[in-house]
Design a protein around this nucleic acid. Structure first.
Lengths: 144, 144
DNA sequence: CGAACTATCGAGAATGGTTCTCGATAAGTG
DNA sequence: CACTTATCGAGAACCATTCTCGATAGTTCG
């Protein structure tokens, strides 16, 4: 009788199912680090953290993994205030982000904006809405 | 008796009133080009347009002017999809943008989102809201 | 108006985040 | 296990943006 695999590995292994992508040790570590961070991290910040456990991991690998995850909708990129891009782990289908200005923590916020604007956009501007993106800035519970 | 100055120059000249900034010919042209574009333009796109009328204008001048205008709240920067930053002219105090996916046109949209989320953010997350940014993507009236 | 002060300009170099290249390695398949 | 090929690591290349510096031109003040 086969023993079931540990759930952590199982869930990560299925992320690339159905794609050409292969699950590698490096990618597992990128995913794990970003998932547990709960905040926006730049590619270089992520690279530094990963080198603590795997000193030879390359910066290009981090970029390649982040790009692959972004295409799959598993991470979303920040709107960088003129500098480097930042990435955050992104689970549910459609939601928004509340970003703490002090500590950088990112919380998910359910979407309630779409329908309120559909009328304004379609009747007022003749604009056919396809999607939207909303970010909140403020101070999180821990910091205040 | 003094003749009143032309209104176009007048309105632009007052943009930097109260600051250390000087209104120069180059800045007037950057402002005019961006204002009439009604769309996001990158610094390099803006530079190309300006060189048609003033071949010797420098790219650094465009960047410097855009940065000064951004500090004054007169332009807002896009959330670049991993590439170069883009800038759009920005008049009224607080509003959002509807961006046409086909032609790139940008229309202003009044804000109605803030209050809807204040309850969710403060009661649900303990998040003290300071600001937000909302972008709509779709097809504008001219394109559909 | 004209001199003095200094912010801004233009051109090119420098910076630094991101992508590309290529030989080596390792994941998935039969 | 052998084979195919996606991925890796290291460094070079790329390119948007910023910096440097001598020259130019707003602005102020007499």
């Amino acid at each position: 009788m086969k023993r079931p695999r540990p759930p952590r590995t199982e869930s990560e292994a299925t992320l690339f199912a159905g794609t050409r992508h292969r699950m590698t040790t490096q990618r597992r570590q990128v995913i794990s680090a970003l998932r547990s961070a709960r905040r926006y991290l730049t590619a270089q910040q992520l690279h530094e953290r990963l080198r603590l456990k795997r000193p030879r991991i390359g910066l290009a690998t981090v970029y390649r993994t982040l790009e692959a995850l972004r295409e799959l909708g598993l991470v979303s990129t920040s709107s960088p205030r003129l500098g480097e891009a930042a990435y955050v782990w992104c689970t549910s289908e459609h939601h928004h982000h509340a970003i703490c200005s002090r500590c950088g923590r990112v919380d998910d916020v359910p979407c309630k904006a779409g329908r309120n604007y559909e009328r304004i956009l379609s009747r007022g501007l003749g604009f056919a809405l396809q999607g939207h993106q909303l970010e909140f800035f403020g101070i999180c519970a821990r910091c205040s």
